[in-house]
Computed example of a mutant assay.
Amino acid sequence: MTMRLVLTRHAKSDWDNPLETDHQRGLNARGKRAAPLIGRWLTEKGYVPQEALVSDATRTRETWSLLSANWPQIPVRFDPALYHACPDVMLRVLRSAKAQTILMIGHNPGIATLAALLLRKPYTHSSFSRYPTCATLVVEFDAEDWSAVGYDKGVALDFIVPRELE
């Protein structure tokens, strides 16, 4: 069986309100433009997930809302464990997923590190190592379920950053 992971960093966040905590920061105008672009790209490429695992931070929730606005309703879990999670925690959360195609929305540096660790071969794209805001990797695994997925087992299908879609 093939398991597919769509790994997205949250869209560009707003730093204008000094009274907000990091967890409370929402998206800025650029982020609000970028997330729907990624959502449309995922639809056009046939990568719409069946389940979503999203950090519970405001900016990841907003990214999810804008990215998925034109999709059929799918189960979503806003998980506090994904807030600034390290790759091992992100992998543990992923292993609890039920659907065959999963979207995970998280934060750097964890999401960039996880993306690199999951792949059998390094991915060549000028922005991959930075994993800028709203960067999205689509990776497949030959596995029966998510418990069998681990580092160095994935094959990259696609990678995009919003700038390429504007």
Rank of each mutant, 00 (worst) to 15 (best):
E166R: 09
D56P: 12
E144Y: 02
P75H: 08
V161M: 01
L82P: 05
S55T: 00
L103I: 05
R163C: 03
R33Q: 15
S147E: 11
V149R: 07
S13C: 10
T124D: 15
I74D: 12
E44C: 07
T21G: 11
P162Y: 10
S96G: 14
P36Q: 14
Q100F: 08
K32N: 12
M90H: 03
T58D: 10
A35V: 13
L137E: 10
D88I: 00
R95L: 03
Y47E: 07
Q50C: 03
G31F: 03
L137A: 15
F141E: 00
A156H: 09
R59I: 13
T60R: 10
K153M: 13
S129Y: 09
Q73N: 06
D79Q: 04
T43K: 11
M3R: 15
N28Y: 00
P87C: 08
L66W: 07
V139I: 14
I111D: 06
W15G: 02
V161G: 04
R95W: 08
T58W: 06
A156F: 03
L137Q: 07
M104N: 01
W15L: 12
V161K: 04
R92P: 01
A115G: 02
A143P: 03
A81I: 01
G150W: 08
I74Q: 13
H23V: 09
R25N: 06
D22Q: 00
A148C: 12
W15K: 08
E20S: 01
D152Y: 02
R95D: 01
M1R: 07
N108A: 07
L165F: 12
G110P: 00
A135L: 02
W64D: 05
L103T: 08
A35K: 12
V161L: 03
E166N: 01
D145E: 05
L165N: 08
A57R: 01
Q24A: 11
E164H: 04
D142H: 11
D16I: 00
P80E: 14
L37H: 07
E144T: 04
F128G: 09
N28D: 15
N108P: 02
V149N: 12
F78I: 10
T2V: 13
Y151N: 04
G46L: 10
Y131E: 06
G106V: 02
T136H: 03
Q100L: 09
K121W: 00
A115S: 13
H125E: 11
K153P: 05
G106F: 12
K121F: 09
C86K: 05
E166P: 02
S55K: 07
S96D: 11
E166L: 03
L114H: 04
L114D: 00
R77W: 11
I38C: 05
L7K: 10
I105D: 07
P109Y: 02
V149D: 12
K12Q: 09
W146E: 14
A156C: 08
L67D: 10
D16C: 01
W64F: 13
A135K: 02
R92C: 12
A35G: 12
C134F: 01
I160P: 04
G154L: 01
D158Y: 05
E51F: 04
Y83L: 07
C86I: 14
L27V: 13
I102K: 06
A81F: 04
Q24H: 04
A85D: 09
R30I: 07
A35W: 09
I160V: 15
G39D: 14
P36R: 09
